[in-house]
Design a protein around this nucleic acid. Sequence first.
DNA 1: AATGGTCCATTGGCCGGACCACCGGACCAA
DNA 2: TTGGTCCGGTGGTCCGGCCAATGGACCATT
Lengths: 241, 241
Amino acid sequence: MSALILTRPLMRNRLSAEIENILLKSIIKGQLVVGEKLPTERELARDLEVNRSTVREALGRLESLDLVEIRHGDGVYVKNYQESGSLELIRAMIRLDERQRDDIIEALLEFRSIIGPEMAFRAAKNRTDDHIQALEEVIWKNRELSTLEKDIRVHHIIGLASANILYLTLLNFFNKFVIEYGHLYFNDEENVKRSERFHEEIYQAIKKGNAGLARKIMRDVLTYAQKAVVDTLQTGRDSRR
Amino acid sequence: MSALILTRPLMRNRLSAEIENILLKSIIKGQLVVGEKLPTERELARDLEVNRSTVREALGRLESLDLVEIRHGDGVYVKNYQESGSLELIRAMIRLDERQRDDIIEALLEFRSIIGPEMAFRAAKNRTDDHIQALEEVIWKNRELSTLEKDIRVHHIIGLASANILYLTLLNFFNKFVIEYGHLYFNDEENVKRSERFHEEIYQAIKKGNAGLARKIMRDVLTYAQKAVVDTLQTGRDSRR
DNA sequence: AATGGTCCATTGGCCGGACCACCGGACCAA
DNA sequence: TTGGTCCGGTGGTCCGGCCAATGGACCATT
């Protein structure tokens, strides 16, 4: 095993992604006013010196994010992202403006502290034997998994058990951040142990169907994690990036 | 004023949107196994009898939804939407499979009952005078607005006041459903009055900065609405659609 | 046998140019 | 004032082509 750790596979961006980022940035920064009509696809293609197809692919993705509205025969209009922006937008905002990264992470953690406990509550009430077995597999049978990976899977199973697709989807969203910024928490050995204890405790509570207890356990660990990460951010102890 | 009410402006779909729906449906229904490689863009274009550009636009949007992964020089692979699917996917699921519409709406309402109160709590603590003034504008100064429209705006202002971009974004998501299915609630005159009373009560609580009260008021109205809509769905009293 | 280099068919990314579908505004006629 | 017609501009789709990245086959070296 080498000591070299590659966080990402050195991905080159697509040209259309570049254009998407340029426009996204302009919209979020307010350089493009809400309701304003964008330059036509042909103009954008000419100014950016790319093909119109490439511009179209970028605009299509922006429309998926509900940032613009494309009207056939008319033009492309900027929408108010504060009113219509989707969750994915938040990831893009972090990507494009590092300065507000910490604020968003804090908002995220606080939010998760609200959602998680209720998800655990539901999971304890609705879990099936399959969920219990899946938890056992992850927590004890997969010794090669890192605690971070285990943590993501444990939460995912709880999300599945909650039997509410919204919890599951929200969790997917959280997990994308955990993957990216989880080191802020799991770099500390003490936090790792805290999580492992959490896995066993929540497993027991859910297995027993003790919904109230499951909620409490989840609330405790999430508020703990929230505090831990916020402290890390504020003291700037993070070594990476 | 005519008695004719048009719910939607008779929009024709883009071809690329058709293709997007076809593939989306196949993925959600499990007809395309996770990890499987899709036909190449050229094959899809030939089989669907459209241009490759059109296929590409559809695939690009599916990638935005985190439903597929496009690998340059390799192919397009199906992702596990239960692990990576975004919130927008839920809207698509309703659109494509009416049978689970009621289940999703119920999940949505339950979820909102968890989120809303905490958002109101934060809003009461962080609100500025501008928010108060904006609430007054909406609640009393705009007499031509329907109660549904007022309701959306009131929630939006509360979301802004909460000073947590996640609450705001989640709210945007909820609102898209309120616009589409709000009639399930606001068709009943009694519910309309309930909402108007709610607007005044939450306004007072937030103005005073009484966070606990704001949370309670929000919780009461959301659980009430949840119950009301679920009842409507189960008794099938909905007249439209 | 294992490793690393080279080549090549396949696949997605991008291109330029063309035509079609649709919208909005100008203009005209009833 | 109303409704019809026309027309320039814009997004939607198509065509054919070339570029860039990938993965696998094959071969040479160790």
